[in-house]
Computed example of a mutant assay.
Amino acid sequence: MSELSFPPAMTGEAVEALPEEVAVAKAISGVDAGLVTWRAAADRVGAALVLAPEVPLRRAMAMLPLAGVGFQNALGALAPPEVAVHLEWGGAIRVNGARCGMMRAFAATRDPEAVPDWLVISWSLDLLPVSMETGHDPDRTALFVEGCADVDPALLVEAWARHTLAWIARWEDPDGLRALASEWRGLVHGVGEDVTRGDVTGTFLGVDEEFGMLLRLPEGTQVHPLTELLEETP
């Protein structure tokens, strides 16, 4: 399937390279926002969205959890109802409790107060196990072994684009951030558990108003902003 149907505000491009690499290169060259690059291989599917934020990076990074919610909504609509999809603060996608994919973010700047020229949010999902030795890593799974063999990877990309655009439109409303936070909190994995960020381990209490991770440490609560998750330009 090479031609997908995207919402009017988006354009799609099937690519052979990693979607995030193509999206970042095109963003740097000045492509219009709304481009979705995608690739569906036999063992993995992924997509990336180019955005042109009009707010400082610290606020624009809300697009990472927003796109994650869009992904959960999309897979939830296509997968059997018993399949559970959750999101880690750090970007991992969990299907039926085990890691199955990853959300990633790239931006033109790392300055939290600067308005970035571009922001790219991407995701990838394993369709088949990385190793044929199933059970070797019980915390890792693949979509097709979790009761989702009938999910069309290309249609998943299509659905993600639609759901993500709907959430972006909602996020721009006065109460949109509150609605997004409420939806995301119902999907986030690991609240109340001990997690490690860098060289610090603490209890994951939840997030602040900009989706920064709140970690409870013996000396008090520490905030880790979403900008920590930005990756180097590929």
Rank of each mutant, 00 (worst) to 15 (best):
M1H: 11
L4K: 06
S5Q: 09
F6P: 02
P7N: 12
M10L: 15
T11D: 03
E13C: 08
V15C: 07
P19S: 09
E20S: 14
E20P: 03
A23F: 06
V24Y: 10
K26Q: 11
G30C: 06
T37S: 14
W38S: 10
W38Y: 15
R39S: 15
R39H: 15
A40E: 05
A41L: 13
R44G: 00
V45P: 04
A47I: 07
V50S: 03
L51D: 07
A52W: 01
P53V: 10
V55I: 13
P56Q: 12
L57T: 04
L57Q: 07
R58W: 14
A60P: 00
M61L: 15
M63P: 00
A67F: 14
G68Y: 13
G68V: 10
V69W: 05
A74C: 02
L75D: 02
L75V: 02
G76S: 10
L78G: 07
A79E: 05
E82W: 06
A84V: 11
H86Y: 04
L87D: 01
L87S: 03
L87Q: 04
E88G: 13
G90L: 02
A92R: 14
V95H: 07
N96C: 07
R99D: 05
C100S: 15
A105S: 12
F106V: 00
A107M: 03
R110T: 02
R110W: 06
D111E: 08
E113H: 09
A114W: 07
V120I: 06
V120H: 03
I121N: 02
L125M: 10
L125C: 02
D126H: 09
P129E: 09
E133F: 06
G135C: 11
H136D: 01
H136Y: 06
D137S: 10
A142V: 10
L143A: 06
E146S: 12
G147T: 13
D150W: 14
D152T: 10
L155H: 15
L156F: 11
A161I: 05
R162H: 13
A166D: 14
W167Q: 06
W167Y: 03
W171E: 04
W171N: 02
W171C: 04
D175G: 12
L177G: 04
L180Q: 06
G186Q: 02
V191C: 03
V200F: 03
T201G: 00
G202Y: 09
L205A: 00
G206P: 04
G206F: 14
G212I: 04
L215W: 08
P218I: 13
E219N: 09
H224E: 13
T227I: 12
L229T: 08
L230P: 01
E231Y: 08
P234Q: 07
